[in-house]
Design a protein around this nucleic acid. Structure first.
Lengths: 131, 131
DNA sequence: GTAAAATATTTAACTAGGTAAATAAATAAA
DNA sequence: TTTATTTATTTACCTAGTTAAATATTTTAC
């Protein structure tokens, strides 16, 4: 396997594990946070808006959203189009959000400590050139 | 989320899907191929050698190896240390290996078409600088 | 206005990663 | 030599992604 591609997979798994570790004290997993973050950013969203934004398949979002409802992070209600489900952050989520976000900002800064802003930008450009 | 880190996750998922698509005609999944490739490279291996080499946890390898045994790609036998299981490619796997590898080489070349060798090397270095 | 097509979501069944704890065998310590 | 520790693997149970197919609703075409 191409060295760069191999390293990409290694770092992806490593970073996922690190994010899960960072979020552990908030009782959240990486994918759950990505959904919460996305909803916070956009306000109310339909499930379809979420999976299109996050670029994953619909069933992944169905599952994660219902888990977040179960855990009390998200409120869900039908839209005026009766096929769709609309989702928003719960009061608890809105309250806890800043602290969790602070943990994540700290994590993200740590992760790229060894890269200058120019290198980060270059890395982004090189990744975009894949396929 | 940092743009480069976000792109890293996106490409990781994208590449996994592409590899699965490439391997579909050989009735294999990405992680199964990574195990077969690793065994082919090293000859006989214990499960512990495999998960240490691939840098994943032991239960992941237990599961994938037994699936590969089930599918007839791998033969398994106890080592002289009776705790360990030793694994090697089956006759079928040895026969099919070159053709599958050719598919994968073709895939890997396609994936980095837009990157010069220097850029690939740079990408690798930048990825290594993460954390 | 009804039939066909499209859209939103869900369900089922996979692969693929993780942690925590159990089991069995080998090694080290006493 | 018996006991304690380490090592190899497994089991159980999560999250997290996928595809394929089902269901319900809305839109489009005729």
């Amino acid at each position: 396997m191409n060295l760069a591609i191999h390293e990409l997979f290694q770092k992806s798994r490593f970073l996922t594990n690190e994010i899960n570790y960072t979020l552990k004290k908030h009782n959240l997993y990486a994918s759950q946070w990505s959904v919460l973050y996305c909803i916070k950013k956009h306000g109310e969203m339909s499930l379809t808006q979420i999976w299109k934004y996050l670029n994953v398949e619909a069933p992944t979002i169905t599952r994660t959203v219902y888990r977040l409802v179960e855990l009390g992070w998200i409120d869900i209600h039908p839209g005026k189009d009766r096929r769709e489900k609309i989702v928003k952050l719960s009061a608890k989520a809105l309250e806890d959000f800043p602290e969790i976000q602070a943990s994540m900002v700290e994590f993200e800064e740590r992760v790229v400590t060894n890269l200058t802003p120019q290198e980060q930008s270059l890395l982004h450009q090189l990744l975009q050139k894949i396929i």
